[in-house]
Write a protein that binds this DNA or RNA. Structure first.
Lengths: 217, 217
DNA sequence: TTTTTTGTTCTTGTATACAAAATACACAAC
DNA sequence: GTTGTGTATTTTGTATACAAGAACAAAAAA
């Protein structure tokens, strides 16, 4: 419909939300630190109104906390928080895997297998950043195959909250191989449309993630 | 403006959020209808800024949709939406049940049994509204026993979105008995700390809910 | 020297004003 | 009668101003 040349189809609100979200995920805004409205507004070149609305959205997403009359702080995750999130994420992805086996088309499964193969290339080249990005996509795409919008939404939300953690976890070289092996099992189960096995593999994969990250939180 | 004596520890934002959320859940603001900022602001006696911030929060909760430059509409749930939500909620509560069996204290379990007994009283008296409220509490409290904050948060969120649907479902008399039986099984499994059985029962209970409501959406 | 009090400054919360976009409506052309 | 166009009106989006609250620091008292 709107095929205008300008890219500004997105509302100012959405732009600010994703911009600040990235700042949090990338660690520019450190966990526990207070958000300096004035300087961020200045940097982003927007006024307070859309900025504050963006803060409310991010607070609802669980990325920051708005303390009445005391400003907003980037949410700091305790090990217990991370464990709780991974516990839930594990079960959500387990469900996603089972549903995907029932509901995905052959083409969709093949696309995921291709994605997995591309990940292997990056793994063999020890190219961490591209691998990391493909990994995020792998989990998102697999969840999409569940054909359950709510499930996708919740998975996306948890993934966003944990993005930094997961990145840290992946930085420890010894664990990388394990993650790749997990994916190997997942892909083979998906090809066989073995829902139970895929679900188990995904839950296990998330549980392994906890083992990988728990000491670095 | 601020009723001085009153304990207004809650920010205006929070008050507006829960007020509007209730209006949506109670059906005063009908699904699909546009939100008339001017009249609602007038009715609530607040200005646009906190009101709009509240809309952003509710949008993030999934209760309404903000269409840029076109106002906000109360989210209208399709049968597919409801099915997707119940599918996820079922698995979340299944997980909650299993965790509760591992992590809850005897006192906490006893408190839930007491709550169940109070529900039975209302059921025998055919007192629908008190039963409905206790039922919400039952599910919330059981989820609390999982000791997983993220799980609670997501359960709360889905429960809020589905609140109206569930109410409609409960209005059909023939299904009431079934729901009570489900709870009976759940409570007995909890007392026995039989996680697998409780999880199954909870998932089943949610699945039954779908059967009860699917024709009325 | 330590603690409490008070005043100043900075930050946040709320209201309002202004700009931009969308909708509704009237009138004209086909 | 239908379609199109231009204008008026309403509604939303953004900016800014003002008020209220919290943090901080300096001065006075213990």
């Amino acid at each position: 419909m709107n095929t205008s040349l300008a890219i500004t189809n997105r509302s100012l609100h959405d732009q600010v939300v994703s911009r600040v979200r990235d700042l949090i995920i990338e660690g520019v805004l450190e966990p526990g630190s207070r958000i300096d409205e004035a300087s961020l507004i200045d940097e982003l070149g927007v006024s307070r109104t859309p900025f504050r609305e963006a803060l409310r959205t991010l607070a609802a997403e669980g990325l920051l906390i708005v303390r009445p009359s005391k400003g907003s702080v980037v949410r700091k995750l305790t090990p217990e928080d991370v464990f709780a999130m991974l516990e839930v994420l594990g079960h959500l992805e387990q469900l996603a895997g089972e549903l995907a086996c029932e509901r995905a088309s052959d083409e969709e499964i093949q696309a995921l297998v291709d994605l997995h193969n591309r990940m292997l290339v990056q793994y063999r080249a020890r190219d961490r950043m591209p691998y990391y990005k493909l990994n995020q996509e792998f989990h998102s795409r697999l969840t999409e195959l569940s054909k359950n919008d709510t499930l996708q939404e919740m998975q996306r939300n948890l993934q966003a909250r944990l993005k930094r953690i997961r990145y840290i976890g992946n930085q420890r070289p010894d664990s990388w191989a394990g993650a790749v092996e997990d994916h190997e099992v997942m892909v083979s189960a998906l090809k066989a449309r073995d829902g139970a096995r895929l679900g188990q593999a995904m839950a296990q994969h998330i549980a392994n993630t906890w083992d990988r990250v728990k000491d670095s939180i």
